[in-house]
Amino acid sequence: MLKLIKFLLARNSLLLFLGMEFIAFILILNNNLYLKYQTNDIKTEISGFYNSKINSFNKYTSLADDNLKLLEENAELHKKLLNQNHINYSKNIWDSLDVIPAFVLTNQYQMINNIVLLNKGSKDGIKPKMGVIGSKGIIGITLKVSPHYTAVLSILNRKNMISVSPKHSNQFGFLKWDGKEANILNITDLPFETLIRVNDTIVTAGNSNIFPKGIPVGKIINIKKSNDSKIYQIKIKTFEDFTGLDYAYILKNSLAKEYEQLKDSLDEF
């Protein structure tokens, strides 16, 4: 080290010369437009390459945050859409609708009675008997709620039964799963008078405070008429793919309690 210092001190004029030339070159680079653009191009290339690498790393690390943001945005859009399209049909029940986004933690579809577990709970305002939808259609109804998690009774559960109707009809039947094939469900008790065809869209009937009318459920893939009971036996394919659920939206109706209380009081008569 001492040798190096001695060497530099002995050649201080060389250092001075190099320093001055360095300053001069900085001045030239700053003054010369051609060089400035040329060096700017190189700088832009280097910084672009560096930033793209950093950005891709940051994107990867912030993927969860981005997903959450998108989920919240989707929830807001769902809320607007539901309020615009469906509330009019059942105004008395769905005057105050909120949509809570959630991640799917566990998604069963191979069992006979399947459950979907969500990462939102009572602390987020979720209660039992709330409708749960996906990005394309309904998923199920909230069954049990802990402070941070919610178990959803999937429509792929034989204990679940939701009233549904063809999109352009007021007749309704019940959506049931036979426990065989995921994404394929049955509609029972739909009256003969209903005009339906294969590929017709099935939506929620809106007979309760769980789902408003008109939320998509699936498309008819098979229709059978039973002459003796005068009802249809319909198979539908759900819009929501239950083998790949990632997100869910819980429909919160703030007037549900009031509705339930009134309904209970009517049951006494």
């Binding site: 001055m20 300053i23 001069a24 070159f25 001045l27 030239i28 680079l29 003054n31 010369n32």
Partner: peptide
């Protein structure tokens, strides 16, 4: 001498807007 050269070149560069050409 280096300082004199540096400042005289810089003086020229400032007056005729040539960056650091004359300094170098």
């Amino acid at each position: 001498q280096l300082f004199l050269a540096f400042f005289s070149g810089l003086f020229l560069d400032i007056i005729i807007h040539t960056g650091g050409v004359f300094t170098a």
